[in-house]
Amino acid sequence: MSLASTITNPPEPEIHASHDVHEHPFYQKHHFETAEQQREAASFGMWLFLLTEIMFFGGLFFAYLLYRNWYYDAFVSASNSINMVMGLINTIVLIGSSFTMAMAVWSAEVRNKKLLQIFLLATVVLGFAFLGIKTGEYYDKFAEHHVPGASFDIHDFVHPQPGTNEKALSVDMANKTQIFFSLYFAMTGVHALHMIIGIGILIGLLWYSRSGIYTEGYVQPIENFGLYWHFVDIVWIFLFPLLYLINRH
């Protein structure tokens, strides 16, 4: 049956053994017919929110695409000036936190409170580790006068340190590195803001998980937060090669 015809003529309900159970779980809101309807609505709502997030970051990614093509040399030099090792460690940290978050969802699903709390805590710790490393990177950029604005200094790009195989840029092209750093700070900054908000929510979830509500069937908040956290991870998966690895050889 095609999708359109299933929508117009819904198939007869399948019969399930448990379907005449009429008790409502404690977390079911009054305006939903069933807990299942509530869960699917919440998860769909979260996905729609992530849809807006895709478009929110989408504008920045398009700006990156445009300027990288316009000012490729400036982007290469500027990209090589940021610390790739820190970026790599951060990638591993963030993917690790995504893994612990996925495990937290699993713990809630199999109703293991202890494991849930351990994995949530691990996610918080890894989140803070990411932000800590990021702060270090930002500090370096401030020290090198690579932050766009009045104190921006193109010296490093016009006269690269001898011994490296960096290409010396013309003054005009070196000025365009400001665009790279504008995007670098805008993209990683908005990403870090998402991390900070996420960690805040995580701590909240950790607090409420003590009462055990998430491990008695009410998986939804953990699951939805997991979707958010994985999304933030995906953004970083793209940011890492685009910002740190333009042309390293």
């Binding site: 819904p10 007869e12 399948e14 448990s18 379907h19 017919e33 807990a35 299942e36 699917e40 069937g217």
Partner: peptide, 16 residues
């Protein structure tokens, strides 16, 4: 543990 929720008829017939 495959399914956490109790199925309900009006929802199961939903193609979504």
């Amino acid at each position: 543990q495959e399914n956490l929720d109790m199925h309900d008829a009006p929802n199961v017939m939903n193609p979504e």
